[in-house]
């Protein structure tokens, strides 16, 4: 009796496994024969491409006003929530109070000593002490966040952009611990009540996922410059770092530039002309 019960349980276990595996086998076997497989997925002809996207920020051209416009344009383009925004009580009744330390930002202003803590200097030229420095994701060549992510929700695209797949992110926040630039934000709550005006051209996020600058991948795909570069009055230039004739390379060739925390070897793709 005992023996047969045991073998029954074994058989049941094996068949349960079979039921679990069957759909996977079916899916593999059937792919390639559907009409969907005859279709072609391509880039739009007008899409901007690069071997490795990079950004050059001319710090002398960034005034408080320009910086503000840039931050605002980015928020608007990507539906980045602003916790200072008062939620519409009709649409979102009973919104709980906000913890401002749980904010979300993609590009924002910092002082020199925060943007470049390793270059802090008491005798630094006065004008740098007051200048707004815009900081964002550096789209590092050796990105620690990509290495840390356990699901490849954060990954590096062939063209150098470090991207997030919001569908796949489990919200473990390992990437936030890994990023040496504090460039990542977590959606501690549903962001929608805190978006002033939803932009239909870009999805919002759900609670529980990490987000950060995507170098306007969705705009590059349409042949548009990133939103920040667009409104920067020439202060931000985005282009191909591996093309010696690109505008970014010409700028870097002409002027002295620095990158954030170069000593860590993550190879940031964002350059600051001093």
């Amino acid at each position: 009796m005992k023996k047969s019960r045991r073998s029954f349980l074994k058989a049941a276990g094996v068949s349960a496994l079979g039921i679990g595996v069957a759909p996977a086998i079916q899916a593999v076997a059937s792919s390639g024969s559907t009409p969907a497989a005859l279709a072609a997925k391509t880039k739009h002809p007008e899409a901007l491409t690069a071997h490795r996207w990079g950004m050059v920020i001319d710090t002398s051209k960034i005034t408080d006003e320009v910086a503000e416009n840039i931050v605002h344009a980015c928020r608007k383009a990507h539906n980045v929530p602003d916790l200072n925004h008062e939620p519409d009580p009709e649409k979102y009744p009973k919104t709980r109070p906000v913890n401002h330390n749980q904010e979300v930002k993609w590009i924002w202003e910092e002082h020199f000593e925060s943007a470049f803590p390793d270059k802090e200097d008491e005798f630094l030229a006065e004008r740098f002490k007051e200048l707004p420095f815009l900081v964002t994701c550096n789209h590092c060549k050796n990105a620690p966040c990509v290495q840390a992510c356990p699901t490849q929700a954060t990954f590096k695209r062939e063209d150098g952009i470090v991207l997030m797949d919001f569908h796949r992110c489990i919200g473990c926040r390992f990437c936030m611990a890994a990023c040496p630039f504090g460039s990542r934000s977590f959606n501690f709550r549903d962001p929608r009540p805190f978006i002033e005006e939803i932009n239909p051209d870009f999805p919002t996020r759900s609670k529980g996922v990490v987000e950060k600058c995507n170098l306007c991948a969705e705009r590059l795909a349409k042949g548009l410059q990133p939103a920040c570069a667009d409104v920067s009055e020439g202060a931000i230039v985005v282009g191909d770092l591996e093309d010696p004739n690109s505008e970014v390379r010409e700028l870097l060739n002409e002027k002295y530039s620095i990158r954030r925390k170069q000593e860590l070897g993550t190879e940031p793709s964002v350059y600051y002309i001093m």
Binding site: Q152, R168, I170, F174, N187
Partner: peptide, 29 residues
């Protein structure tokens, strides 16, 4: 503790679905 810390706990099996040896969290699991 790991599960209650996740922002999207319902997606936790993504760690198995997309195994990623360069992530230490994968090895920890």
């Amino acid at each position: 503790f790991i599960i209650v810390d996740l922002g999207q706990p319902t997606r936790m099996l993504n760690v198995l679905l997309y195994p990623t040896p360069h992530s230490m969290l994968f090895w920890d699991m």
